[in-house]
């Protein structure tokens, strides 16, 4: 990764097991960036936009968001909309990583500004494989700083 220590991967995933498996498989692809895991939308947004929700606090950070759509307190769509409508965070890449393959859901995510939409394969072998490929993809990806 060109900016090895500056890009932080924010993983918003309520299933702890999935979070752990995703992290392990990304690491196996050689990604060494810091990974921040969040189990729900509220704490994740507090970290990304600051406690006041302004998006001013995290200036200077480069975020890459891995977002699950099924969360206990809000849907991933809400988080996506908040991030993409905030002028400080709108350029941060958001990768939607979820089990839903509903076409309308996918269209909606891209309409709201999602950068990549990945359906979690429901078979573990393909799941592990997909995450590893995502890791390889992340390692060559450019991420802008928030400004």
């Amino acid at each position: 990764m060109p900016q090895p220590r500056t890009v932080t991967i924010v993983m918003i995933e309520d299933d702890e097991g999935h979070a752990r498996l995703i992290e392990k498989n990304i690491r196996r692809a050689g990604v060494t960036n810091e990974i921040l895991g969040f189990r729900d939308g509220t704490t994740a947004l507090a970290r990304l936009l600051g406690p006041d929700g302004s998006g001013v606090l995290p200036l200077g950070h480069a975020w890459l968001v891995l977002l699950d759509l099924n969360l206990p307190d809000m849907t991933g769509i809400d988080i996506l909309a908040r991030l993409k409508s905030n002028e400080h965070t709108r350029r941060s890449p958001v990768i939607v990583l979820t089990t839903t393959d509903d076409q309308r859901e996918i269209q909606r995510c891209y309409d709201l500004g999602a950068n990549v939409y990945i359906t979690k394969p429901l078979n573990y072998e393909s799941f592990a494989n997909a995450i590893r490929q995502l890791g390889l993809f992340l390692s060559v990806m450019q991420v802008p700083e928030a400004d």
Partner: peptide, 14 residues
């Protein structure tokens, strides 16, 4: 049901 199953399979693999 899928989500926990992926975990079981994943961690079995691990």
């Amino acid at each position: 049901l899928r989500a926990p199953l992926v975990n079981i399979m994943g961690f079995t693999s691990e």
